[in-house]
Design a protein around this nucleic acid. Structure first.
Lengths: 240, 240
DNA sequence: CGGCCCCTTGAACTACATCAACGGGGGTGG
DNA sequence: CCACCCCCGTTGATGTAGTTCAAGGGGCCG
């Protein structure tokens, strides 16, 4: 039952058998809660377990000298936050809790056992890593070649679909518990400029965003401005 | 013998047994040459085989309206260019030959067979995907929060180590067969500005770059300017 | 020999950053 | 329970890194 959110996410990629489901349930040996602002995983560490998000938002980030920060990934419930640490061993970045989080814990021993005996499940977990990479590539495109408004629109499109995929969005509305400063570190923009872009998006009737609730007011135009194509999310059930 | 470059690359991550080596050799059923400027793989396609680079440079890229282009990855000999297409099925970007290339071809059937019976080799191939993702994250950090000069310096550090890992660099020197326009599309900069940054790097005695040959003249300072930490490349043999 | 990349330079422009300041709301300590 | 304070969103003014436009020159290939 711990792994319910994770399984729902993996089921977007391919059908998961009952046997596989049970294996995942048993692999998630326990859970942990992490306070807002705390690190789930730290740069330089060599984790012996991987974490998936059950509730809350998390962010991978890197720090540079002069206090600059870049967020390289946002994670929502169901995401396997540091699955790659099983393969890559040493963390090259940290992961922090954007909100209070509960995470499921899967020991690397359990992942190894799955990789030894469960080729199909292993492939589906591989899809997870590959889709993370695809999202990274899209972010590179957006930071590199889109305007601040286009880029922001793109991120909203992406988050909406990802949250919808795990049942956390309805009626073009979802929770976005990020501050504008955190959004700036995600988009590679200053806080001030994020604020102006958001106001422009409101003025154009693209979105509303009050408190933690975002409503997409004009989905077709938001997609069009962002040049959004959902292919990179691989949200289609296929035999893998 | 076809897969020699690929195997050399994988051996940077972990020891590859003779049996695994032979499997890879047999999986690489044939090779192909691709002319400079041609696409190896096209966005929207559903490849039934994956390609690794034997010789030449290749780039993954996305196009935006108004003719803008962003390169999201550079590939050098030994790189498994679209291994992820085995898992993700539909390409969300294209891959082009920066120079004339020869590529080895591995049918997805062969990759599936490996995934069914070769857990260790499957994990090592997974490292390949995970390291690609780590490089993507580093690019996000560099585009998002570094100056043009810092970012360029970082890319040169990365390329030097990656080329050195496959025996294509010596004495702080390597071949970089990119035009300044292509480098701009890689860094998210205009051609004009790339030119000015390169000149600044030359003026500071960091590098020389004549024709296709780059020489790193001051490796410690180049790394320091770039805030370069090679951890993300995972170039250490470890049991995986 | 001609044409076309590719590198280079100059000048003008602009998207976004930086600096500074203020108000409101929610949590905390007295 | 109230007061304070800090975080967060917001706004204005100014600064600048990088873009865009334009043009020339050199080398290589057909």
């Amino acid at each position: 039952m711990l792994a319910a959110a994770l399984i729902r996410k993996l089921e977007k990629f391919d059908r998961i058998s009952d046997a596989e489901r049970q294996l995942l349930e048993r692999a998630a040996v326990r859970q942990r809660t992490v306070a807002k602002g705390e690190d789930l995983v730290q740069e330089g560490s060599r984790p012996s377990e991987s974490l998936f998000l059950i509730t809350g938002f998390a962010a991978r980030y890197s720090l540079l000298r002069k206090g600059k920060r870049q967020i390289t990934a946002l994670h929502v419930p169901g995401d396997f936050v540091d699955l790659h640490s099983f393969l890559v061993k040493k963390m090259d970045h940290s992961v922090m809790a954007i909100t209070a989080c509960t995470v499921g814990i899967v020991p690397h021993d359990a992942l190894r056992a799955i990789s030894e005996t469960q080729p199909h499940l292993t492939r589906v977990l591989g899809v997870n890593i590959a889709v993370d990479a695809a999202i990274h590539r899209q972010w590179i495109v957006s930071i590199g070649r889109q305007s601040a408004l286009e880029h922001t629109a793109h991120l909203f499109c992406e988050l909406f679909l990802r949250l919808q995929a795990v049942g956390l969005a309805e009626d073009y509305s979802f929770k976005l518990p990020l501050t504008q400063a955190e959004l700036g570190d995600t988009l590679g923009l200053s806080t001030v400029h994020v604020n102006r872009v958001i106001q422009e998006m409101r003025a154009q009737g693209l979105i509303t965003w009050r408190g933690e609730t975002v409503v997409i007011e004009d989905w077709p135009r938001l997609q069009q401005i962002a040049e959004f194509d959902p292919t990179f999310l691989s949200l289609e059930v296929e035999p893998r």
